[in-house]
Amino acid sequence: MAPDDLERRIIVATQGGLPLVSDPWGAVADELGIPPQELLARIRSMLERGVIRRIGAVPNHYAIGYTANGMSVWDIDDEAIDAVGEWLGALAAVTHCYRRPRRLPDWPYNLFAMVHGRSHDAVRDQLEDIAARLEVRFPCACRARDVLFSSAILKKTGLRIAGQE
């Protein structure tokens, strides 16, 4: 489904952020040339349909003290992966969890789970604990694992679609 023209224009107008003024939705509506109530109704619809995931602040996790951002990666038996993924994703320490293709021989891992913590050691400790519990719950399902820490945010602008097509 292609975005209709208004939704596309709403995305272009707000993808860089909302204006920090008393009536930000009114300001966006003015920019789009539509009544504020129409904008708000459409935003509500986009939230209900999941086109907008949420509206709010996107923190830089380094700046708020989560200096360790660990991407844990797991080589999980294909038979068990969905069960392991559901289990791993539900853990409080895990903020995102995805199944992705392996890229053999360079990359054997098919499950990715983000873990944020106050230090690399704290994240490593959590992952040790998770791996031990995983082995009890799903014996031999995990063949290998690793964790990749980020050492710099090189870019974090978020989605940018073109203003004109």
Partner: peptide, 9 residues
């Protein structure tokens, strides 16, 4: 501290 403030699509 915040990289953005607005809707996440």
């Amino acid at each position: 501290v915040l990289t953005r403030f607005g809707p996440m699509f």
